[in-house]
Write a protein that binds this DNA or RNA. Structure first.
Lengths: 76, 76
DNA sequence: TCACATTTGTACGTATGTATC
DNA sequence: AGATACATACGTACAAATGTG
């Protein structure tokens, strides 16, 4: 769950969590990340917010998007 | 309503009102405070002034801000 | 090939606060 | 005080790709 009392934007909070899991190897390269809907349910955020989280990881070079399939941990 | 004849700055006047409501429990911990726009309409002040009011409460440790969501009464 | 439902991500409109002039 | 641009959120509705039969 995200902390709406925090001054850190929810989409950044969730991104930080996923980033941590990627770095710890809980999500390995090539593996699929949670979908937008998964994040909505897991963290209680809006679809738009969840999508923004995943796009942020793409921007950071940590993930790649495959249309219709979802987001994957980027290799290398 | 604020008193523009007063030597107390409008943003402090409104902050005092909100502070009173928080202390009396009219706004409970975790509850959302009026938005900037709410304050603009309720007290006839400018957006900038209303925002300053809410940020003052944050500075005082009475409230917390969440991007895109608003201000909340701080717990504890 | 062809629907069709499901799953996936996207766009839009509205609301929230911030920063700057 | 007012105007504008920005960042962020929510909910709804939409569009694209998948996979199944």
């Amino acid at each position: 769950m995200v902390d709406y009392q925090s001054s850190v934007a929810p989409y950044r909070q969730v991104a930080a969590i996923l980033r941590g899991k990627i770095e710890r190897g809980e999500y390995e390269p090539g593996q699929r990340l949670p979908s937008v809907n998964d994040l909505v349910q897991e963290y209680g955020i809006a679809r738009t917010t969840a999508a923004k989280t995943l796009r942020l990881l793409v921007t950071e070079g940590l993930a790649e998007m495959s249309p219709g399939m979802g987001f994957y941990v980027k290799a290398g």
